[in-house]
């Protein structure tokens, strides 16, 4: 048990696939029995939209109706960044000297990236968008800057604060709403819109930094393994 095998023999894979095939067929059969108009909560969501502070139903569900799920999801993302930071300590994978060509490219791209991320974040209130999409765009920009050697990740307090910012703001808003309404994440009065915007803005920054951390730690780890001549387990 303790000695792991690197590869599963091909015949075992084939056997497994063959064994799972009937299950897949049974599942397909079951799904085909799905009602043509499945019952759902769309009518409830539409009815409560005016109280949600936003006009896009997806954002209303994610940040207001089921905001608690999203609070825990933000915790999961933070956990991923934190785990990568603690499990793979070591120097950043970014080059030591800025790369002249990539720096030039970034000079053009950076404003566009920031503006797009900002717009997508704001657009979440009334059309598809929000913190997750905006955070991914911001993260892509940060990865580019790291590849160009303009930023080097270090497990400093600043980075840790940045990774936790989204979660910290979410918890703070949750506790603030709790003290005002007696119900967790029940945004008082007409504060829904600004509460959601505050949570999403902070989350965007953290998600961007988490993506950068994951990219940097994974590349640093695989490079140091290659230097040591280790093969992947």
């Amino acid at each position: 048990m303790s000695a792991p095998r690197a590869f599963i023999p091909r015949w075992q894979c084939a056997l497994l696939a063959l064994g799972l095939l009937p299950l897949l067929l049974a599942l397909l059969h079951a799904v085909s029995a799905m009602p043509a108009r499945p019952p759902n909560l769309a009518a409830d969501v539409t009815a409560r939209m005016p109280d949600s502070g936003v006009t896009h139903p997806l954002t209303a569900v994610l940040l207001n109706f089921r905001g608690y799920d999203t609070l825990l999801e933000i915790a999961v993302l933070w956990l991923a960044g934190l785990a990568a930071l603690t499990l793979a300590p070591g120097a950043s994978a970014a080059p030591l000297k800025p790369h002249p060509v990539l720096t030039g490219l970034l000079r053009v791209l950076a404003p566009v990236i920031l503006m797009t991320a900002g717009y997508i974040l704001w657009a979440g209130g009334f059309r598809p968008g929000g913190a997750f999409q905006a955070g991914s765009i911001l993260g892509a920009g940060l990865v580019l800057a790291s590849l160009a050697g303009l930023i080097r990740l270090s497990p400093s307090l600043g980075l840790r604060l940045g990774l936790g910012l989204g979660l910290a703001v979410f918890i703070a808003v949750a506790i603030w709403s709790w003290t005002h309404t007696g119900e967790l994440l029940h945004f008082p009065g007409a504060s829904d819109k600004w509460s959601i915007l505050l949570i999403e803005s902070a989350a965007t920054i953290s998600i961007g930094l988490i993506l950068l951390t994951l990219f940097d730690r994974l590349t640093a780890e695989s490079e140091s393994n290659e230097k040591k001549g280790l093969k992947r387990p």
Binding site: L41, D44, R48, N64, R66, Y68, D69, E183, L185, H186
Partner: peptide, 13 residues
Amino acid sequence: RHRLGGWGAPLGI
């Protein structure tokens, strides 16, 4: 039972 966000099931959690 605590209704998160003040919505209550089935809309809320």
